[in-house]
Amino acid sequence: MIDGFLALYLFMLAAFTGHEIISRVPVILHTPLMSGSNFVHGIVLVGAMIALGEATTWWQQLIGFVGVFLGAGNAAGGYVVTERMLEMFKSSKKPAAAGESK
């Protein structure tokens, strides 16, 4: 169990961290970054796994199953989509360099 005030400090520090690390992000990265942060909250899968693990009745299992299914989709889908977008950024550097050198 996490003590109330400790949790409050945790929330505060994490919020500042989130704010700070993306405060100077260029516009071209808005979409991939949103997609990336979408993947990061896919960690919810871990919580859903624990909820299903604790289940003792059929309806708890059902809710847990839905939770794990959705959480896994968030994590897996979020990862693939972000990775594909960022891959594009890498390949775009070569033509850009060619454009400059001509």
Binding site: F11, A15, G18, I21, L33, I43, G47
Partner: peptide, 25 residues
């Protein structure tokens, strides 16, 4: 929030970071 309910610090930190970064975005 659900991370707090479960006492799972990883969920609290990742969730809050995304919450703050997402709001800014």
């Amino acid at each position: 929030f659900e991370g707090y309910v479960q006492g799972n610090i990883a969920l609290i930190i990742a969730g809050t970071v995304v919450g703050a970064a997402g709001t800014l975005l």
